[in-house]
Lab assay of single mutants.
Amino acid sequence: KRVEVKPYVLDDQMCDECQGARCGGKFAPFFCANVTCLQYYCEFCWANIHSRAGREFHKPLVK
Rank of each mutant, 00 (worst) to 15 (best):
K1D: 12
R2Q: 11
R2W: 02
R2E: 14
R2V: 06
V3D: 15
V3N: 06
V3M: 09
E4M: 05
E4F: 06
E4A: 07
E4P: 07
E4D: 08
E4H: 04
E4T: 08
E4G: 05
V5A: 09
V5E: 15
V5Q: 14
V5N: 13
K6V: 08
K6T: 10
K6R: 08
K6F: 04
K6Q: 09
K6A: 10
P7W: 02
P7E: 13
P7K: 13
P7H: 09
P7A: 06
Y8C: 08
Y8A: 12
Y8I: 11
Y8S: 15
Y8R: 14
Y8F: 10
Y8K: 15
Y8M: 04
Y8L: 11
V9R: 07
V9N: 12
V9M: 13
V9D: 14
V9C: 12
L10R: 13
L10P: 11
L10Y: 06
L10W: 13
L10V: 08
D11E: 14
D11I: 13
D12F: 04
D12V: 06
D12K: 12
D12C: 04
D12A: 08
D12G: 10
D12N: 11
Q13V: 09
Q13Y: 06
Q13N: 08
Q13K: 15
M14T: 14
M14F: 10
M14W: 04
M14V: 09
M14Q: 11
M14N: 14
M14I: 09
C15E: 02
C15A: 03
C15T: 03
D16L: 05
D16G: 15
D16K: 13
D16C: 13
D16H: 14
E17V: 10
E17I: 08
E17L: 08
E17C: 12
C18D: 00
C18I: 00
C18S: 01
C18E: 01
C18M: 00
Q19P: 02
Q19K: 15
G20I: 00
G20Y: 02
G20N: 03
G20W: 01
G20Q: 02
G20E: 03
G20L: 00
A21F: 05
A21R: 11
A21C: 03
A21T: 08
A21V: 09
A21P: 02
A21I: 06
A21S: 11
A21L: 06
R22M: 11
R22D: 05
R22K: 12
C23Q: 05
C23K: 06
C23P: 05
G24E: 12
G24C: 05
G25Q: 10
G25A: 07
G25N: 11
G25L: 06
G25T: 09
G25V: 04
K26L: 07
K26Q: 08
K26Y: 03
K26F: 04
F27C: 13
F27I: 06
F27K: 14
F27P: 12
F27E: 09
F27M: 11
F27R: 11
A28R: 05
A28S: 04
A28G: 04
A28I: 04
A28H: 03
P29N: 12
P29E: 08
P29F: 04
F30R: 09
F30T: 06
F30C: 04
F30H: 14
F31M: 03
F31K: 04
F31I: 02
F31P: 02
F31W: 11
C32H: 00
A33S: 14
A33P: 10
A33T: 12
A33L: 04
A33Q: 14
A33F: 04
A33H: 07
N34S: 09
N34E: 13
N34Y: 08
V35A: 13
V35Q: 12
T36I: 09
T36C: 06
T36S: 12
C37F: 00
C37Y: 01
C37E: 01
C37S: 02
C37K: 01
L38H: 13
L38M: 15
L38P: 01
L38G: 12
L38W: 13
L38E: 14
Q39W: 01
Q39D: 02
Q39L: 07
Q39R: 15
Q39T: 12
Q39K: 15
Y40K: 06
Y40T: 04
Y40C: 03
Y40Q: 06
Y41I: 01
Y41R: 01
Y41L: 13
Y41A: 01
C42I: 00
C42V: 00
C42P: 00
C42L: 00
C42G: 02
E43S: 12
E43K: 07
E43A: 05
E43F: 05
E43I: 02
F44L: 12
F44Y: 14
F44K: 10
F44S: 12
C45P: 00
C45Y: 00
C45G: 00
C45R: 00
W46V: 02
W46C: 03
W46D: 01
W46A: 03
A47C: 04
A47M: 12
A47R: 11
N48Q: 11
N48H: 13
N48R: 13
N48K: 15
N48F: 10
N48L: 12
N48A: 12
I49T: 07
I49V: 12
I49R: 12
I49A: 12
I49C: 03
I49S: 11
I49F: 10
I49W: 05
I49H: 11
H50F: 00
H50C: 02
H50E: 02
H50Y: 01
H50P: 01
S51W: 05
S51H: 10
S51Q: 14
S51T: 12
R52V: 14
R52D: 15
R52P: 06
R52Q: 15
R52G: 12
A53K: 15
A53L: 09
A53D: 12
A53V: 12
A53H: 13
A53S: 13
A53E: 14
A53W: 05
G54V: 04
G54M: 05
G54K: 06
R55N: 11
R55C: 06
R55F: 13
R55T: 07
R55H: 08
R55M: 13
R55A: 11
E56K: 13
E56V: 04
E56S: 08
E56M: 07
E56C: 06
E56Q: 06
F57I: 08
F57P: 11
F57A: 15
F57T: 15
F57Y: 11
H58M: 01
H58R: 01
H58I: 01
H58T: 02
H58E: 03
K59W: 03
K59E: 15
K59M: 08
K59Y: 04
P60L: 02
P60G: 04
P60H: 06
P60W: 01
L61T: 14
L61R: 11
L61H: 10
L61A: 14
L61W: 07
L61N: 13
L61Q: 15
K63L: 04
K63A: 15
K63Y: 03
K63E: 12
